[in-house]
């Protein structure tokens, strides 16, 4: 295969996986752009922020913080807390992003919830280049988000938003990917721990901190299991 054919084949394999995200990101990106427009910002703001931050919930919060007193340290830490979940994505992708050459920095930069979930769970067909497949998933997803945010910022409230509820496409996507993950794993300890701890932490510490709190507890669960396994391995 020529390099062109390799790229084309990976692109064709990647597009279908990103279609639900096209619907979700176009809609949520538009919402974000409209929100920025209504907060009085030029469309350049949502365009550049979606391109450079590229983390949905953080962008909404930064939009808010831009309207308040200058507090760079506060922005840094709130973004760090909201996006702490990315640390888990990186740990899971250490192996899969290996040997992807110059694409690796971009794959890591563009590792949003959706791109991580697809690149981790997708069964990439034989004969399709993994690096290019993951590259196209990541780049397509980012282009949908930036496109939506820019259009929303440009046209603001003139865009009809009676497509109420389309954002649910992201929830449906994660439910489906969660089930795919359940089908692939040999035991469900991790999934059960994640679900139960996340719900309990959401109830106890609330929306802002429940993700990092859950992450710490999940690592704790893993450490206990890992230790026990090592102990029993030593006995044999």
């Amino acid at each position: 295969m020529t390099p062109h054919q390799v790229r084309w084949r990976a692109f064709k394999a990647a597009v279908p996986y990103t279609l639900p995200i096209l619907a979700g990101f176009a809609f949520l990106g538009l919402t974000y752009g409209i929100y920025m427009h209504q907060s009085g910002f030029n469309f350049i703001y949502p365009m550049l922020m979606s391109l450079t931050i590229f983390a949905g919930s953080a962008e909404f919060i930064v939009a808010n913080l831009l309207l308040q007193a200058f507090n760079p340290v506060g922005v840094f830490f709130i973004t760090l807390i909201i996006n702490s979940r990315h640390l888990f994505y990186g740990l899971s992708m250490l192996d899969r992003y290996r040997h992807t050459g110059w694409k690796k920095p971009y794959l890591i930069f563009g590792m949003c919830d959706e791109s991580f979930s697809i690149n981790y769970t997708a069964t990439i067909p034989d004969g399709v280049d993994r690096g290019w497949f993951m590259f196209f998933v990541t780049a397509l997803n980012q282009s949908y988000w930036v496109g939506g945010a820019t259009l929303g910022g440009l046209f603001g409230s003139t865009i009809p938003t009676h497509i109420k509820g389309l954002g649910f496409v992201m929830t449906a996507l994660f439910i489906v990917l969660c089930i795919n993950q359940l089908r692939h794993e040999s035991n469900h300890l991790s999934s059960k721990a994640g679900a139960i701890l996340a719900i309990v932490m959401l109830l106890i510490v609330g929306q802002t901190y429940f993700i990092p709190a859950t992450m710490i507890l999940v690592i704790l669960v893993f450490t206990i299991v890992y230790r026990q396994k090592e102990l029993t391995d030593d006995h044999h």
Partner: peptide, 24 residues
């Protein structure tokens, strides 16, 4: 430890993301 942690985490992540979608 990190290698095995990396293969353990995705189950918890996916479940966490679903809860995250329902947080509101």
């Amino acid at each position: 430890f990190i290698q095995q942690l990396g293969t353990f985490l995705p189950g918890a992540i996916m479940a966490m993301l679903v809860v995250y979608c329902y947080k509101d």
